[in-house]
């Protein structure tokens, strides 16, 4: 598995999945680069898992085509696709120990025992589970099981690794830790990762590119920064981070809470809006202030506590300022 992979780009062309009369995925087209960490992000029912299951070969494509490095794989059954997959809930084999779980893919390919052993050792090393090799999955913690699932899916050097909400069952602190490990492993092995999640923080912190999905279709594709800084519409702006929506001259603008300056006192010459403070919530690194404007809108502002000593109080009359480029014009709808 050590040599860098020359394959692993995916072409998804006008793919749809229809269950009866329900279109779970509609007309999705997407090119995935070799070695890319791509995240499918969306609320439940957005079709992201259905799309992943079609990539894995567990679901047939109703319309369109999926190709690996240019060659169609739409008719190839799951067991012949050679895609690694980390399942939701891990789906480890409960009757086998960690070593046999990881070596399963090579073992069913009838590889030599020595080769399997070598690969399993390498994988145990990669996910740092050497001392647990002889345990059963039931004797491992959630985080350790997750790593076994990852090692099992990577042992046969798949060109593409599919991950279906792999961190969903972990608590928040562990999740952040495993996110880091996943990124390190991705950099080390250079396999194409396709990662499904509904957690926007996970998507922002790990991905090379994010695909935001809604109702079976792609809303927007881009790097985390592109999507955060230039959301296309209200859905993207509010699904990825928080946003205020400002209406001006029949246009809608998205305005991130941390990009607004707040000055106590009214009639500042550059003020865009003014109002009174109706709520202050302290989060440690910052505080979130809600201002009721004269127009009757509630604007959320994140203030860096360290640089702005506690000068804001409930009921204060304040001016709101922001730079022109902070407000992003959105498409309607």
């Amino acid at each position: 598995m050590a040599e860098p992979l020359e394959i692993g780009s995916l072409q998804i062309r006008n793919v749809s999945k229809i269950f009866g009369t329900f279109k779970a995925v509609s007309d999705v087209s997407l090119n995935v680069q070799k070695g890319e960490f791509l995240t499918l992000l969306g609320p439940s029912g957005s079709g992201k898992t259905t799309l992943l299951m079609m990539l894995a070969g567990f679901l047939d494509v109703s319309e369109g085509d999926i190709a690996l490095d240019g060659a169609s794989i739409a008719g190839v059954p799951a067991e012949k696709r050679n895609f690694g997959m980390v399942f939701q809930g891990y789906a480890l084999f409960p009757h086998m120990n960690v070593r046999d779980n990881i070596g399963y893919a090579l073992s069913v390919r009838n590889r030599a025992v020595a080769e399997i052993e070598a690969c399993v050792d390498e994988m145990l090393d990669l996910v740092q589970l050497q001392q647990f090799a002889d345990r059963k999955p039931g004797q491992l913690s959630g985080g350790q099981q997750q790593r076994v699932a990852l090692a099992r899916a990577l042992c046969f050097a798949p060109p593409v690794l599919l991950l279906d909400e792999p961190l969903g069952a972990l608590d928040k602190k562990l999740r952040v830790e495993v996110q880091e490990q996943l990124k390190v492993i991705h950099r080390r092995i250079g396999t194409t990762f396709i990662y499904v999640t509904h957690d926007q923080e996970e998507a922002l912190s790990m991905s090379d590119r994010i695909v935001i999905m809604r109702d079976g279709a792609i809303e927007q594709v881009g790097t985390p920064k592109e999507l955060y800084e230039r959301p296309k519409n209200k859905f993207t702006a509010s699904f990825l981070g928080k946003s205020n929506f400002i209406h001006h001259n029949d246009k809608v603008y998205a305005l991130r809470p941390e990009k607004i300056d707040l000055i106590v006192g009214v009639d500042h010459q550059d003020a865009r809006m003014n109002g009174t403070v109706s709520s202050i919530t302290y989060f440690g690194s910052m505080q979130r202030v809600i201002v009721d404007t004269k127009e009757g809108q509630k604007i959320e502002i994140d203030i860096d506590v360290w640089r702005n000593a506690n000068e804001v109080k409930l009921g204060d009359a304040v001016d709101l300022l922001w730079a022109d480029e902070a407000a992003v014009e959105l498409q309607m709808g």
Partner: peptide, 18 residues
Amino acid sequence: IDTRIMDASRNLGASGSQ
């Protein structure tokens, strides 16, 4: 039996009888 376990086996390249 979690059906995903059987999916996992297929995904890892095992034939039906395996």
